[in-house]
Design a protein around this nucleic acid. Structure first.
Lengths: 202, 202
DNA sequence: CCTACCGATCGGTAGG
DNA sequence: CCTACCGATCGGTAGG
């Protein structure tokens, strides 16, 4: 790397480095139990130096959670828009949710566990996003029941069960584990269709 | 209540009152964000007075989590031992897990979210208990696959999906909600059988 | 990016 | 069950 490249990359890249270190430590220890000193240690600097790159501890949490929620919602919307068949739509939304929780484990853990420490209006925004997220599953399952493609007593309960099993992936997934992200996403897509009583591939 | 009854009940009942107040506030705010002053406020006393009833903030967390884990494990074991039919066994264990997470919402939230703040050797004990808990599901599903009662690619993935959807109940269940504890327990029992490809009642 | 430091908060103890 | 208080920690600022 030339000096010019370093001069250009370092100022902009440093912010991302700080956020990434914060993300790792927030996920491992919890937001409230993480000190600015912990984050600084991970970067080999002193705590006050962090304030050259981020505004506050709270601002890091907000960036992490808002960005993660936006990505999960965008992936879900792409899955939703990719087909008009309810069976395929439910499978693809479940697949997207599982992949998000496998790829963005740290973000998912922090967003779910530390959402309560978000200052307003950020916290309300995240709850609202979550409502939209749930609604797309619920409406898809309700549509499937109306069309006769699915057979389940409560679309709401099925929605919550399908979402929660995907959220759980963030808690135990390891890159080095027995099942690949794709294997898990595929199987969980099948589970979702089984839960709602829909037709499956296998 | 007579004075004698009050004299007998108050000293022993006070410890339980403190734990219950701590449990409510731990669940709402998180262990690290809860101060001894918060718990004292809920009881109408001053923070130092709490130490007449409990040893420390940490000891309250340990009692709450250890007790909850023991109850969930005991309920699961009763379900496991109540039948030798794998289908009925899986249904009943799922039912017990859902009922635990609906009845002991606060305990479940604290146990799952704040387990990392448990001092050793308590933390290791809880992880070990969790291993036993998972193993009973895994073995039941594996047995069902061997017997031909279930049809699922990965017993491990099905185990995690079934457990996690039950854990999720603690996050949204309300006594006043649309579905009763029994309705949810029943439907989730069906979901579990559907996930593993087993026969269902409906 | 650093050192020095401030104001606030917290778990727990002393002593009654 | 209380008041008074201690030692430690923390997020953030000043000033360089």
């Amino acid at each position: 790397m030339t000096d010019v490249e370093a001069a250009v990359l370092t100022p902009s890249g440093r912010h991302a480095d700080v956020i990434d270190a914060a993300l790792t430590i927030f996920a491992a220890q919890g937001y409230r139990a993480t000190t600015m000193g912990d984050i600084a240690d991970a970067l080999g600097i002193r705590a006050p130096s962090l304030y050259n790159h981020v505004k506050s501890k709270q601002s890091m949490l907000q960036q992490i959670v808002l960005d993660a929620m936006a990505r999960n919602l965008a992936d879900q919307k792409a899955a939703y828009d990719s087909t008009r068949d309810v069976t395929e739509r439910l499978r693809r939304m479940t697949d997207a949710n599982v992949r998000f929780h496998a790829r963005s484990r740290r973000e998912a853990v922090v967003a779910n566990r530390d959402i309560r420490y978000l200052d307003e209006p950020c916290r309300s925004k995240v709850y609202a996003d979550r409502g939209v997220f749930e609604m797309r599953f619920r409406e898809t399952i309700e549509a499937g029941v109306r069309e006769g493609a699915f057979d389940v007593r409560s679309a709401n309960l099925a929605t919550l069960a399908i979402i929660e099993m995907g959220v759980g992936v963030a808690r135990w997934f390891r890159e080095s584990g027995e099942d690949s992200e794709s294997a898990i996403a595929y199987d969980y897509g099948e589970y979702a269709l089984r839960i709602v009583g829909g037709r499956q591939l296998r």
